[in-house]
Simulated assay, not measured.
Amino acid sequence: MNWIANVVPPKIRSLLRRETPDNLWVKCPESGQLVFHKDLEANLMVVPGSGYHMPIGAKARLAALMDEGLYEELPAPEVPADPLKFRDVKRYVDRLKENRLKTGAYDAVTLAHGQLEGQAVTVAVQDFAFQGGSLGMAAGEAIIAGMTAAIERRTPFIIFTASGGARMQEGMFALMQMPRTTVAVRRLRAARLPYIVVFTNPTTGGVTASYAMLGDIHLAEPGAVIGFAGARVIEQTIRERLPEGFQRAEYLKVHGMVDMVVPRPQQRATLARLCRLLMREPRPAPEPAPEQAAAA
């Protein structure tokens, strides 16, 4: 025991001790660089030095995308919470409660409607923090509801994908969301409305095998893993060494599965430009310079 613990009263000791929050500094998984968490949040969770894209929550992504950070969150249809009464180490309903408490979202997909550089858009964001972004009944219904809302409002539909695949706790009910969302994409296409997919890290499994690969334009964040089966499973199956960077966004762009690799800070401007082109809307007139406004 030191003299502070033995002599100094507890109230004074609390003043002398400076508590440091655990999340004050964030370490980049790629470069090992330490970044102040406020600087990281200001840069949309992209490490300034290495450009590594860390996970970002659905609400933070929507706020960064929409004009003035304002949007209307759309309700998702309610579904049976546990159709198979599934239980492994713990009950599935308990897992859902934990994930809802952790993320503040009803399920893995959040729907929103708002303005993107003055254009109305409908957006879905898949959050990997909620049960690995897995595709279950609730997520499937949310995506279908989002596409239906886009058709009704005559807006482009943008989805940010992040998933490990179908949700095993829902079995065949989860697998059925693959054809159901595919049908919804066909309805969106029949309405001649743009469908833009932004792949984030990771997008794998049944999500890649359904609505994620059906976009009119595919964007991806740098370094995002995109594929169906994992690279290790593929190597064990074909018994060959896979190329460097296999299943990464840059590799898929070279091989034609991704149209553009766009860093997160540039996505807002890129998506706005694509929506204008696909909806055939004119570019908004630039705001007059202060001198011109004063002269007028």
Rank of each mutant, 00 (worst) to 15 (best):
V89P: 01
T203R: 11
L116S: 01
S210A: 14
A108G: 08
H113N: 08
M279Q: 10
A231C: 08
A220D: 02
E68C: 01
A220V: 00
G140W: 07
D107F: 09
V79C: 06
A138S: 14
G165H: 06
G245T: 03
G171K: 05
G245R: 04
V254P: 01
F199Q: 09
D22A: 15
L65V: 04
D94W: 03
V261C: 09
R87V: 00
E68R: 02
T181Q: 13
R154M: 06
L101P: 00
A174Y: 07
V233K: 01
R13H: 03
T161H: 12
T20N: 15
F228G: 05
P55L: 10
L116M: 02
H218K: 04
K11Y: 06
N6G: 02
R268E: 08
V233H: 03
M279W: 05
A220I: 01
P286T: 05
V93S: 15
T148Q: 11
G136M: 12
A124E: 14
Q266K: 14
M66K: 00
E98A: 13
A162F: 13
N6Y: 02
V89E: 12
A124N: 13
A81C: 03
L111F: 08
Q267S: 08
R241C: 09
Y195K: 03
V262C: 09
A184F: 07
F128W: 14
L175M: 07
A81W: 04
F157A: 04
I4S: 01
K90M: 15
I234L: 08
R232H: 09
R273G: 10
I159H: 03
Q119P: 07
G49K: 12
G57I: 00
A269Y: 07
G118V: 00
F86C: 01
K85I: 00
L101D: 06
R87D: 02
Q266T: 07
G132C: 08
R268D: 10
A289D: 11
S134F: 04
E30C: 05
G69W: 07
G132K: 04
A5C: 03
L15E: 13
M172P: 05
P194E: 03
G104D: 10
V261Q: 14
G205I: 13
P286S: 04
A166Q: 10
E240I: 03
S14A: 10
M257C: 08
L62T: 01
V258A: 05
N23H: 12
G49T: 15
G118D: 07
E68L: 00
P10L: 11
Y251H: 07
H255T: 02
A60D: 13
G118P: 03
E19D: 15
A191G: 05
R187M: 13
A63K: 12
C275G: 11
V79N: 05
V121D: 01
T270F: 12
R154E: 12
G132I: 13
D88W: 09
A150T: 04
R187Y: 13
N201A: 14
F228P: 00
A184Y: 02
E170Q: 09
T208G: 08
G114M: 06
R87G: 01
P80R: 00
G114V: 02
A150P: 07
Q169R: 07
V79H: 06
A138L: 15
Y195H: 15
Q115L: 14
T270H: 08
A295F: 07
V207N: 05
L188H: 09
R17H: 11
I151N: 05
F130V: 02
P77D: 04
R273E: 15
Q119S: 12
P156E: 00
V207A: 11
D88H: 11
M260L: 14
L62W: 04
A76N: 00
C28V: 14
